[in-house]
Amino acid sequence: MSNFFDFMNIKKGEIENLITMAEKFKRGEILDKPLKDKMIGLLFNVPSTRTRISFQAAIKQLGGEVATYNSQDLQLANKESMKDTATVMGKYLDGLVVRWYNMNDYGYGRNTLNEIADSSNLPVINALDDKDHPCQILADILTLKEKYGENYRKKKVLFTWGYADRKKSPGCTHSMLTAASILGMDLRIAHPKGFELDNEYLSFAENAARQSGANIEFSNDLDESIEGVDVVYAKAWGSLSLPGYEEQKYKCDIKDQWLVNSERFARANSDAYFINPLPIIRGDEATADIIDGPRSLMYQTAENRLHVQKATLTSLYSR
């Protein structure tokens, strides 16, 4: 890989190698320092907790130095072009981790990532844009593999929409859809009408699933789709089609129908797990008893962010 933006542009074997490498990092089997004497920049235009901190820790543990830049602290705030900013960053740094999006302008984030990569000539890692969040989904799949071994591909994973007050990126959903279709997983995506995914991702997943044997399903009914699943992954994302004012009212009207509560979670298999990538507000996507309950893998997945960040960085710099 020269950049890591999404799963649509890497092969099945590369995804599997990243997960395997993350497992080795977690077990302490890899002690290499591929970032020795390298400076990696983190450029963010929206808030971040786990992604920012896990990358900071990973870079340091791999022997590198890290600097974090908020767009409002740079001349970007005074309308300097991203081309000029990224070109100069390319003269100073050895790589960039970028979180950049504005969900009122879908596609703006990915276009910006492409511009940064082209102008800086640096390896660029997508730390969440308006289309993908591959680093998060790598951590989720690592967690599933830890629980189920190679059999994780045969477990029924429900990825369901949930309420959030703010308009969130569909990045996790798109990345889970594409990764599952490449890896041959059994994935069901549930969402209200009006929250359909990008057609580019739907088409890619359909073609990839034919090659891998993945089972990809869609539903507009949480009560129906949660029946008998092994994993419930609740995640809000914004509509790509509804006007903002209409979306906000609609979300409020349907919030309770899409809440993962104890009654709905009981419809899943008795040993089902719950996943959320965080942040989460208890009572929005799921209730506190599910989020904080014994079947929640939320914090394990958050821990695994560190190990997949190490694997991703190593894959870019150990060449």
Score class of each variant (00 low, 15 high):
N3P: 00
F4Q: 10
D6T: 14
F7W: 12
K11F: 00
K12S: 07
L18G: 07
R27Q: 12
G28E: 04
E29Y: 01
D32V: 10
K33N: 08
L35K: 09
M39F: 12
M39S: 13
L43C: 07
F44H: 04
F55T: 03
V66A: 13
Y69R: 09
D73Q: 07
L74E: 07
Q75N: 14
L76W: 06
A77R: 14
A77C: 11
K79H: 14
M82W: 14
D84H: 11
A86H: 14
K91Q: 10
Y92P: 01
R99F: 08
Y101G: 00
M103C: 03
T112K: 11
N114Q: 11
S119A: 15
N121P: 00
H133P: 09
Q136R: 02
L138V: 06
A139Q: 03
I141T: 10
K147Q: 15
N151C: 01
Y152I: 01
L158W: 09
L158N: 07
W161H: 09
A164I: 01
R166C: 00
A190P: 10
H191A: 09
P192V: 08
F195S: 06
F195A: 03
L197M: 14
E200G: 03
Y201S: 03
E206A: 12
E206G: 01
A208P: 10
Q211F: 08
S212V: 10
I216Y: 09
E217Y: 12
N220H: 15
S225A: 15
I226Q: 06
E227I: 12
A234W: 00
E263Q: 13
R267M: 12
A268W: 14
N269G: 11
N276G: 01
P277I: 00
L278W: 10
I280L: 13
I281K: 14
R282C: 08
A286D: 04
D289H: 02
I290Q: 01
R295T: 06
S296Y: 02
Y299H: 10
T301W: 00
N304G: 04
V308L: 04
